[in-house]
């Protein structure tokens, strides 16, 4: 294989917010290509901060530790460089951007990534064909195409749009930040099906979630419990069921 099988390695990662509050207090995690990892934890445990730090969002300061992604120092890359290197963040709250057409946006993103990889850009026709094929595969309607990015989308539509973007951009590492929050059962099924279709031997997926529900549809290879900024337990999928029964309290102090 041309890619290293170890995709992401996080060692002793500490990070704090701009106001000085330390949120991540020593995260260790290794993700191998082809795997799906679930990171579970209660509100305030640092789940979304971990996703934000990995994606390169501003407003967080890494105070210790390192993150290696495909053999490179991930933290040295800007957010857009990380994305062009194949990292994708599925937002818990997808952002509405009035005035920017959804397709224009996605084509700009896809072509930025293709340029980076030395591949030819897609023209409007090629892009539209690729879009149609992908929408059909994901059972997503074409009405998302003509609107501004996420503007006026229902919660479910926004999450579908995230999954659709992920399918179009074909990342090496996808981080899904509470993609299941606020979804009804139908939307959850569409999103989960989309995620399952994305599973590939050269791709890793990290599911960040509060609840076990999504894991009924997307079966993880590994499950980690995040509490107060540390991973306190790791195991196979049975760990999620254990959590569902006993709650987070069994793993230590939640606060």
């Amino acid at each position: 294989m041309e890619f290293p099988s170890l995709m992401l390695e996080i060692r002793n990662l500490h990070a704090r917010l701009g106001d000085g509050r330390e949120i991540l207090k020593g995260i260790d995690l290794a993700v191998t290509a082809g795997e799906v990892h679930a990171i579970m934890g209660p509100n305030g445990s640092g789940k979304s901060t971990l996703a934000a730090v990995l994606a390169g969002r501003e407003g967080y300061e890494v105070t210790a530790g390192e993150v290696t992604y495909l053999g490179r120092d991930l933290l040295a890359l800007a957010a857009d460089e990380r994305a062009r290197e194949g990292l994708f963040l599925d937002f818990q709250y997808p952002v509405e951007i009035p005035g920017v057409n959804n397709m224009y946006f996605l084509r700009a993103a896809l072509n930025a990534q293709r340029r980076h990889r030395g591949e030819p850009e897609l023209d409007a026709g090629q892009f539209l064909r690729a879009v149609r094929a992908k929408l059909k595969e994901l059972e997503i309607g074409e009405d998302l195409l003509q609107r501004a990015v996420n503007v006026g989308f229902s919660g479910g539509e926004k999450k579908r749009n995230e999954i659709f973007q992920m399918a179009m951009l074909e990342p090496r590492l996808a981080i899904l930040d509470e993609t299941d929050s606020g979804l009804d059962i139908d939307a959850l099924r569409v999103v989960a099906t989309g995620v399952n279709r994305q599973r590939r031997s050269d791709r890793a997926i990290i599911l960040i979630t509060h609840y076990q529900r999504l894991l009924n549809y997307v079966e993880p290879d590994r499950v980690h419990v995040l509490l107060a900024g540390r991973i306190v337990e790791s195991g196979d999928k049975s760990l999620a069921l254990e959590l569902e029964r006993g709650g987070y309290a069994a793993f230590g102090s939640v606060g």
Binding site: A78, D80, A83, F91, V95, F105, A108, A112, Q165, L169
Partner: peptide
């Protein structure tokens, strides 16, 4: 950040938002 997180370069992302 949303635009950056999709791989769009910072200068292009800013231009898209100003245009919008």
């Amino acid at each position: 950040f949303y635009l950056l997180s999709r791989g769009i370069r910072r200068a292009d992302a800013r231009r898209m938002l100003i245009d919008a």
